[in-house]
Nucleic acid binder design. Structure first.
Lengths: 146, 146
DNA sequence: ATGAGGCTTCCCATGATGGGAAGGTCAAGG
DNA sequence: CCTTGACCTTCCCATCATGGGAAGCCTCAT
Protein backbone atom coordinates (compact mmCIF):
# COMPACT_ATOMS: atom_id res chain seq x y z
CA UNK A 1 0.00 0.00 0.00
CA UNK A 2 1.32 3.42 -0.95
CA UNK A 3 1.12 6.39 1.36
CA UNK A 4 -1.94 7.77 -0.37
CA UNK A 5 -3.93 4.59 0.18
CA UNK A 6 -2.70 4.37 3.74
CA UNK A 7 -3.85 7.94 4.27
CA UNK A 8 -7.28 7.21 2.88
CA UNK A 9 -7.56 4.01 4.91
CA UNK A 10 -6.46 5.58 8.18
CA UNK A 11 -7.87 9.06 7.96
CA UNK A 12 -4.42 10.55 8.50
CA UNK A 13 -3.17 12.78 5.69
CA UNK A 14 -0.05 11.75 3.81
CA UNK A 15 1.59 14.91 5.05
CA UNK A 16 0.94 13.95 8.63
CA UNK A 17 2.03 10.36 8.13
CA UNK A 18 5.42 11.59 6.97
CA UNK A 19 5.52 14.01 9.86
CA UNK A 20 4.75 11.29 12.39
CA UNK A 21 7.54 9.22 10.89
CA UNK A 22 9.93 12.15 11.10
CA UNK A 23 9.26 12.79 14.78
CA UNK A 24 9.43 9.09 15.55
CA UNK A 25 5.79 8.54 16.43
CA UNK A 26 5.70 5.77 13.84
CA UNK A 27 8.77 3.85 12.78
CA UNK A 28 10.08 4.26 9.27
CA UNK A 29 8.26 1.80 7.05
CA UNK A 30 9.54 -0.34 4.22
CA UNK A 31 10.36 1.29 0.91
CA UNK A 32 10.19 0.16 -2.67
CA UNK A 33 13.34 0.33 -4.77
CA UNK A 34 12.19 3.67 -6.01
CA UNK A 35 11.90 4.97 -2.48
CA UNK A 36 8.13 4.83 -2.12
CA UNK A 37 6.87 4.11 1.37
CA UNK A 38 4.99 0.83 1.67
CA UNK A 39 2.36 0.32 4.37
CA UNK A 40 1.00 -2.89 5.84
CA UNK A 41 -2.44 -3.23 7.37
CA UNK A 42 -0.90 -3.18 10.83
CA UNK A 43 0.75 0.13 9.94
CA UNK A 44 -2.68 1.39 9.03
CA UNK A 45 -4.08 0.18 12.35
CA UNK A 46 -1.41 2.12 14.12
CA UNK A 47 -2.26 5.21 12.12
CA UNK A 48 -5.92 4.80 12.89
CA UNK A 49 -5.09 4.55 16.57
CA UNK A 50 -3.20 7.81 16.29
CA UNK A 51 -6.00 9.43 14.39
CA UNK A 52 -8.57 8.45 16.95
CA UNK A 53 -6.38 9.61 19.81
CA UNK A 54 -5.88 12.96 18.10
CA UNK A 55 -9.62 13.25 17.70
CA UNK A 56 -9.90 12.83 21.44
CA UNK A 57 -7.46 15.69 21.89
CA UNK A 58 -4.40 13.77 23.02
CA UNK A 59 -1.08 15.41 22.22
CA UNK A 60 1.52 13.63 20.16
CA UNK A 61 3.53 13.07 23.30
CA UNK A 62 0.61 11.42 25.04
CA UNK A 63 -0.14 9.33 21.99
CA UNK A 64 3.42 8.13 21.98
CA UNK A 65 2.92 6.88 25.53
CA UNK A 66 -0.42 5.34 24.64
CA UNK A 67 1.12 3.53 21.69
CA UNK A 68 3.83 2.13 23.92
CA UNK A 69 1.24 0.86 26.38
CA UNK A 70 -0.83 -0.53 23.55
CA UNK A 71 2.15 -2.50 22.33
CA UNK A 72 2.96 -3.78 25.82
CA UNK A 73 0.73 -6.71 26.56
CA UNK A 74 1.75 -6.65 30.20
CA UNK A 75 0.82 -3.04 30.75
CA UNK A 76 -1.20 -2.09 33.77
CA UNK A 77 -4.52 -0.53 32.82
CA UNK A 78 -3.80 1.96 35.60
CA UNK A 79 -1.08 3.48 33.43
CA UNK A 80 -3.50 4.04 30.59
CA UNK A 81 -6.15 5.39 32.88
CA UNK A 82 -3.71 7.84 34.44
CA UNK A 83 -2.92 9.35 31.05
CA UNK A 84 -6.59 9.55 30.19
CA UNK A 85 -7.70 11.15 33.44
CA UNK A 86 -4.89 13.68 33.31
CA UNK A 87 -5.99 14.56 29.81
CA UNK A 88 -9.60 14.83 30.93
CA UNK A 89 -8.52 17.23 33.64
CA UNK A 90 -6.63 19.32 31.07
CA UNK A 91 -9.66 19.48 28.85
CA UNK A 92 -11.92 20.40 31.73
CA UNK A 93 -9.59 23.19 32.74
CA UNK A 94 -9.68 24.50 29.20
CA UNK A 95 -13.45 24.32 29.22
CA UNK A 96 -13.63 26.21 32.47
CA UNK A 97 -11.49 29.01 31.06
CA UNK A 98 -13.53 29.23 27.90
CA UNK A 99 -16.74 29.21 29.87
CA UNK A 100 -15.47 32.12 31.91
CA UNK A 101 -14.70 34.07 28.78
CA UNK A 102 -18.09 33.29 27.35
CA UNK A 103 -19.85 34.35 30.54
CA UNK A 104 -18.07 37.67 30.61
CA UNK A 105 -18.58 38.28 26.92
CA UNK A 106 -22.20 37.32 26.95
CA UNK A 107 -22.83 39.66 29.85
CA UNK A 108 -21.19 42.51 27.97
CA UNK A 109 -22.88 41.72 24.67
CA UNK A 110 -26.26 41.56 26.37
CA UNK A 111 -25.80 45.12 27.53
CA UNK A 112 -24.68 46.37 24.14
CA UNK A 113 -27.50 47.89 22.12
CA UNK A 114 -25.94 46.77 18.88
CA UNK A 115 -27.39 49.62 16.88
CA UNK A 116 -26.05 52.71 15.11
CA UNK A 117 -25.18 54.51 18.30
CA UNK A 118 -21.54 54.48 19.33
CA UNK A 119 -21.91 53.73 23.04
CA UNK A 120 -20.77 50.20 23.74
CA UNK A 121 -20.18 48.48 27.08
CA UNK A 122 -17.93 45.95 25.39
CA UNK A 123 -15.40 48.56 24.39
CA UNK A 124 -15.87 50.30 27.71
CA UNK A 125 -14.96 47.14 29.52
CA UNK A 126 -11.93 46.44 27.35
CA UNK A 127 -10.80 50.02 27.76
CA UNK A 128 -11.12 50.33 31.48
CA UNK A 129 -10.22 46.74 32.15
CA UNK A 130 -11.63 46.96 35.64
CA UNK A 131 -11.28 43.96 37.87
CA UNK A 132 -14.40 42.08 37.04
CA UNK A 133 -15.12 38.51 37.91
CA UNK A 134 -13.14 36.83 35.18
CA UNK A 135 -10.12 38.96 35.77
CA UNK A 136 -10.06 38.42 39.49
CA UNK A 137 -10.20 34.70 38.89
CA UNK A 138 -7.41 34.91 36.38
CA UNK A 139 -5.29 36.89 38.79
CA UNK A 140 -5.95 34.28 41.44
CA UNK A 141 -4.64 31.32 39.51
CA UNK A 142 -2.12 32.27 36.90
CA UNK A 143 -1.25 31.07 34.38
CA UNK A 144 -4.47 31.26 32.42
CA UNK A 145 -3.91 31.48 28.66
CA UNK A 146 -6.20 29.08 26.86
CA UNK B 1 8.42 55.32 30.13
CA UNK B 2 10.69 52.50 28.96
CA UNK B 3 9.35 49.26 27.63
CA UNK B 4 9.88 47.49 30.94
CA UNK B 5 7.72 49.93 32.84
CA UNK B 6 5.11 49.87 30.10
CA UNK B 7 5.09 46.10 30.35
CA UNK B 8 4.61 46.18 34.09
CA UNK B 9 1.92 48.85 33.82
CA UNK B 10 -0.03 47.08 31.09
CA UNK B 11 0.43 43.45 31.92
CA UNK B 12 1.84 42.79 28.46
CA UNK B 13 5.38 41.39 28.39
CA UNK B 14 8.10 43.47 26.72
CA UNK B 15 8.54 40.64 24.26
CA UNK B 16 4.93 40.82 23.24
CA UNK B 17 4.91 44.61 23.06
CA UNK B 18 7.71 44.44 20.50
CA UNK B 19 5.86 41.68 18.67
CA UNK B 20 2.64 43.71 18.54
CA UNK B 21 4.62 46.60 17.14
CA UNK B 22 6.21 44.35 14.55
CA UNK B 23 2.92 42.99 13.26
CA UNK B 24 1.39 46.46 13.29
CA UNK B 25 -1.10 45.96 16.11
CA UNK B 26 0.39 48.99 17.82
CA UNK B 27 2.15 51.74 15.93
CA UNK B 28 5.86 52.24 16.40
CA UNK B 29 6.36 54.48 19.41
CA UNK B 30 8.81 57.30 19.95
CA UNK B 31 12.44 56.45 20.56
CA UNK B 32 15.20 58.07 22.57
CA UNK B 33 18.40 59.01 20.79
CA UNK B 34 19.85 55.71 21.91
CA UNK B 35 16.99 53.82 20.30
CA UNK B 36 15.00 53.01 23.42
CA UNK B 37 11.25 52.84 22.95
CA UNK B 38 9.34 55.48 24.92
CA UNK B 39 5.74 54.90 25.98
CA UNK B 40 3.06 57.39 26.93
CA UNK B 41 0.16 56.65 29.25
CA UNK B 42 -2.13 56.43 26.25
CA UNK B 43 0.17 53.80 24.77
CA UNK B 44 -0.20 51.90 28.01
CA UNK B 45 -3.97 52.19 27.82
CA UNK B 46 -3.87 50.73 24.39
CA UNK B 47 -1.72 47.85 25.62
CA UNK B 48 -4.07 47.23 28.51
CA UNK B 49 -6.95 47.11 26.05
CA UNK B 50 -5.08 44.50 24.07
CA UNK B 51 -4.24 42.56 27.16
CA UNK B 52 -7.81 42.44 28.31
CA UNK B 53 -9.03 41.44 24.86
CA UNK B 54 -6.49 38.63 24.75
CA UNK B 55 -7.70 37.47 28.14
CA UNK B 56 -11.16 37.22 26.65
CA UNK B 57 -9.75 35.04 23.90
CA UNK B 58 -9.89 37.48 21.01
CA UNK B 59 -7.35 36.85 18.27
CA UNK B 60 -4.88 39.52 17.29
CA UNK B 61 -6.86 40.07 14.12
CA UNK B 62 -10.06 40.65 16.03
CA UNK B 63 -8.28 42.92 18.47
CA UNK B 64 -7.02 44.96 15.58
CA UNK B 65 -10.63 45.49 14.50
CA UNK B 66 -11.70 46.28 18.03
CA UNK B 67 -8.94 48.84 18.39
CA UNK B 68 -10.05 50.53 15.18
CA UNK B 69 -13.62 50.71 16.45
CA UNK B 70 -12.42 51.95 19.81
CA UNK B 71 -10.58 54.77 18.10
CA UNK B 72 -13.56 55.67 15.93
CA UNK B 73 -15.93 57.80 17.98
CA UNK B 74 -18.62 57.43 15.34
CA UNK B 75 -18.56 53.66 15.31
CA UNK B 76 -21.82 51.78 15.48
CA UNK B 77 -22.05 49.61 18.56
CA UNK B 78 -23.51 46.98 16.24
CA UNK B 79 -20.06 46.53 14.68
CA UNK B 80 -18.52 45.84 18.04
CA UNK B 81 -21.32 43.53 19.03
CA UNK B 82 -20.97 41.57 15.81
CA UNK B 83 -17.32 40.85 16.53
CA UNK B 84 -18.13 39.86 20.08
CA UNK B 85 -21.01 37.55 19.23
CA UNK B 86 -19.01 35.87 16.48
CA UNK B 87 -16.26 35.29 18.98
CA UNK B 88 -18.71 33.94 21.51
CA UNK B 89 -19.98 31.50 18.90
CA UNK B 90 -16.42 30.37 18.18
CA UNK B 91 -15.76 29.79 21.85
CA UNK B 92 -18.98 27.89 22.25
CA UNK B 93 -18.12 25.67 19.33
CA UNK B 94 -14.76 24.94 20.90
CA UNK B 95 -16.47 24.14 24.17
CA UNK B 96 -18.85 21.79 22.45
CA UNK B 97 -15.98 19.90 20.86
CA UNK B 98 -14.08 19.66 24.11
CA UNK B 99 -17.19 18.54 25.93
CA UNK B 100 -17.63 15.76 23.40
CA UNK B 101 -14.08 14.59 23.96
CA UNK B 102 -14.55 14.69 27.70
CA UNK B 103 -17.79 12.75 27.51
CA UNK B 104 -16.23 10.02 25.43
CA UNK B 105 -13.11 9.88 27.55
CA UNK B 106 -14.96 9.89 30.82
CA UNK B 107 -17.14 7.06 29.61
CA UNK B 108 -14.08 5.04 28.65
CA UNK B 109 -12.16 5.85 31.81
CA UNK B 110 -15.15 4.90 33.95
CA UNK B 111 -15.04 1.44 32.45
CA UNK B 112 -11.31 1.04 32.91
CA UNK B 113 -10.40 -0.80 36.08
CA UNK B 114 -7.20 1.15 36.47
CA UNK B 115 -5.39 -1.64 38.24
CA UNK B 116 -2.50 -4.00 37.45
CA UNK B 117 -4.42 -5.96 34.88
CA UNK B 118 -3.76 -5.17 31.26
CA UNK B 119 -7.29 -5.11 29.91
CA UNK B 120 -8.29 -1.56 29.13
CA UNK B 121 -11.36 -0.28 27.28
CA UNK B 122 -9.58 2.97 26.54
CA UNK B 123 -6.95 1.27 24.43
CA UNK B 124 -9.59 -1.02 22.97
CA UNK B 125 -11.55 1.95 21.79
CA UNK B 126 -8.53 3.72 20.36
CA UNK B 127 -7.50 0.54 18.61
CA UNK B 128 -10.78 -0.37 17.04
CA UNK B 129 -11.87 3.20 16.50
CA UNK B 130 -15.42 2.12 15.90
CA UNK B 131 -17.92 4.76 14.95
CA UNK B 132 -19.12 5.91 18.31
CA UNK B 133 -21.08 9.01 18.97
CA UNK B 134 -18.28 11.51 18.93
CA UNK B 135 -16.84 10.13 15.77
CA UNK B 136 -20.11 10.15 13.89
CA UNK B 137 -20.58 13.75 14.85
CA UNK B 138 -17.12 14.62 13.71
CA UNK B 139 -17.68 12.89 10.42
CA UNK B 140 -20.91 14.84 9.99
CA UNK B 141 -19.42 18.28 10.29
CA UNK B 142 -15.81 18.46 9.27
CA UNK B 143 -13.58 20.22 10.00
CA UNK B 144 -13.38 19.51 13.70
CA UNK B 145 -9.88 19.98 15.11
CA UNK B 146 -9.96 21.91 18.33
C1' DA C 1 6.31 6.83 -25.53
C1' DT C 2 3.66 10.08 -23.47
C1' DG C 3 0.77 12.17 -20.03
C1' DA C 4 -1.60 12.14 -15.66
C1' DG C 5 -1.29 11.47 -11.25
C1' DG C 6 1.23 9.79 -7.40
C1' DC C 7 5.44 9.83 -4.87
C1' DT C 8 9.87 11.98 -2.91
C1' DT C 9 12.34 15.79 -0.27
C1' DC C 10 12.77 20.49 1.07
C1' DC C 11 11.26 24.96 2.47
C1' DC C 12 7.79 28.04 4.26
C1' DA C 13 3.66 29.57 6.98
C1' DT C 14 0.44 29.50 10.64
C1' DG C 15 -0.46 32.08 16.08
C1' DA C 16 1.04 33.78 20.18
C1' DT C 17 4.50 33.25 23.10
C1' DG C 18 9.01 32.53 25.38
C1' DG C 19 14.26 31.78 25.56
C1' DG C 20 18.57 33.37 24.83
C1' DA C 21 22.80 35.51 22.74
C1' DA C 22 25.54 39.55 21.47
C1' DG C 23 26.06 44.03 22.12
C1' DG C 24 24.70 49.06 23.34
C1' DT C 25 22.94 52.36 27.26
C1' DC C 26 22.01 54.36 31.56
C1' DA C 27 22.25 55.49 36.39
C1' DA C 28 24.18 54.93 40.87
C1' DG C 29 27.91 54.47 43.80
C1' DG C 30 32.90 54.07 44.66
C1' DC D 1 35.84 59.36 36.18
C1' DC D 2 34.98 54.56 35.92
C1' DT D 3 32.77 50.36 36.98
C1' DT D 4 28.86 47.53 37.56
C1' DG D 5 24.43 45.83 37.16
C1' DA D 6 20.13 46.41 35.27
C1' DC D 7 18.11 47.68 31.47
C1' DC D 8 17.54 48.11 26.37
C1' DT D 9 18.29 46.76 21.30
C1' DT D 10 18.05 43.28 17.34
C1' DC D 11 18.24 38.66 15.69
C1' DC D 12 17.53 33.81 15.71
C1' DC D 13 15.30 29.70 17.47
C1' DA D 14 11.55 26.75 19.52
C1' DT D 15 6.95 25.56 20.44
C1' DC D 16 2.59 22.32 18.26
C1' DA D 17 0.21 20.14 14.57
C1' DT D 18 -0.94 21.10 10.24
C1' DG D 19 -1.10 22.57 5.39
C1' DG D 20 0.81 24.64 0.90
C1' DG D 21 3.69 24.37 -2.75
C1' DA D 22 7.87 23.62 -5.75
C1' DA D 23 11.11 20.67 -8.18
C1' DG D 24 11.93 16.43 -9.64
C1' DC D 25 11.30 11.26 -9.97
C1' DC D 26 8.18 7.02 -10.71
C1' DT D 27 4.37 4.23 -12.57
C1' DC D 28 0.61 2.87 -15.03
C1' DA D 29 -2.67 3.14 -18.64
C1' DT D 30 -3.43 4.56 -23.09
Amino acid sequence: MNIGEAAAASGVSAKMIRYYEQIGLVAGVARTEAGYRVYSTSDVHRLRFIRRARDLGFSVKEISELLALWADRDRASADVKRIATTHIADLEEKMRQIREMVNTLRHLADHCHGDDRPHCPILDNLAQGDLDEAQRNRAARRPARV
